[in-house]
């Protein structure tokens, strides 16, 4: 495996296109691009355009009014806060799980990866219901929680738990195939050279996986902010207090406030796009760094 791949395809796809060995005939290339773009238009662009068209149907004034309303602002804050807690938790887990699964062979690996995938297949409503069964006033820990006046569901901790559950697999599953593809030769070489575990991780593994990791974080974050079903069960829907953005969207929609509902939804889409802008900036700086290093040598 070639060592640290800092380059990125957005800029470096020409390294494939200029190489006769990794290049397809022009018609194949055009066909594939056409298929991808058609699929893109049909499945991604059109829904997004619909959201913005609906959001702006009553004009920009209504659009911004919908976003600056106190209920909307507190929903935005809450959503960001929940994601800010849930994503780092899953980040640490994802790295640990990927390290164990991708770098080592052990019995029960198949079982472990399947368990990591499992939260996806749990219907979000059931995911929420689990926490009601555990922490609801008639749940396993309900009486104890009530006695100690400590709230989990219908409060912030419940929202975080439900969000963590539905986004558990993202970062781990993003990293596992990548780290498997990279093998363990780089790390083993570092061991031979006498590096400690943390040194290996920081200086060898992390640079190798950083784009995969970033993708995992972006996906996890997008999903954490967009999650509806599970959160809806444990939220209690208290306006201005436990309503996240997706829940707020639903309430607005149910009140026939379509323009406002889509305005908040479009903001969720924009937040996701914002994370991708951040990604591009990080990439760009990485490349600047790289070319600076190359000039120095």
């Amino acid at each position: 495996m070639s060592g640290a791949v800092v380059s990125h395809w957005v800029v470096h796809s020409h390294r494939f296109e200029t190489n006769a060995a990794t290049r397809e005939p022009a018609w194949v290339k055009r066909l594939l691009i056409a298929i991808a773009l058609a699929f893109f238009a049909l499945f991604l662009l059109l829904p997004l355009a619909t959201v913005f068209a609906e959001a702006l149907r009553r004009g920009w004034v209504v659009y911004f009014a919908a976003l600056t309303e106190p209920d909307a602002r507190s929903a935005i804050k809450l959503t960001l806060l929940v994601a800010a807690i849930a994503v780092p938790l899953n980040l640490v887990f994802g790295v640990a799980a990927a390290w164990a699964v991708a770098k080592f062979n052990f019995r029960g690996k198949q079982l472990l990866t399947t368990l990591i995938d499992l939260p996806f297949s749990v219907s979000p409503v059931v995911a929420g219901l689990m926490y009601v069964l555990l922490f609801g006033s008639q749940g396993w820990f309900g009486a104890w929680l009530l006695q100690n006046d400590f709230k989990i569901i219908f409060a912030m901790p419940g929202l975080v738990l439900a969000t963590v559950f539905v986004t558990v697999p993202f970062i781990a599953r993003e990293l596992i195939p990548l780290m498997e593809a990279q093998g363990r030769e780089d790390e083993e070489a570092a061991v031979v050279l006498g590096a400690s575990g943390w040194q290996i991780f920081w200086h060898v593994t992390l640079p190798n996986i950083k784009w995969g990791l970033l993708y995992g974080v972006i996906l996890c974050n997008a999903r954490a902010m967009g999650e509806f079903g599970a959160v809806s069960v444990v939220s209690g829907h208290i306006r201005g207090r436990t309503n996240t953005m997706p829940l707020y969207v639903e309430i607005l929609y149910n009140e026939y406030n379509f323009a406002a509902a889509f305005a908040v939804a479009s903001l969720l889409a924009l937040l996701a796009l914002l994370t991708l802008v951040v990604k591009s900036v990080v990439e760009w700086r990485g490349q600047q760094q790289l070319s600076a290093d190359q000039e120095a040598t």
Binding site: V132, G136, Q138, G139, I153, F154, G236
Partner: peptide
């Protein structure tokens, strides 16, 4: 909503 209140909301 009723379910939520029954569960402790």
């Amino acid at each position: 909503q009723a379910m939520s209140v029954a569960s402790g909301l």
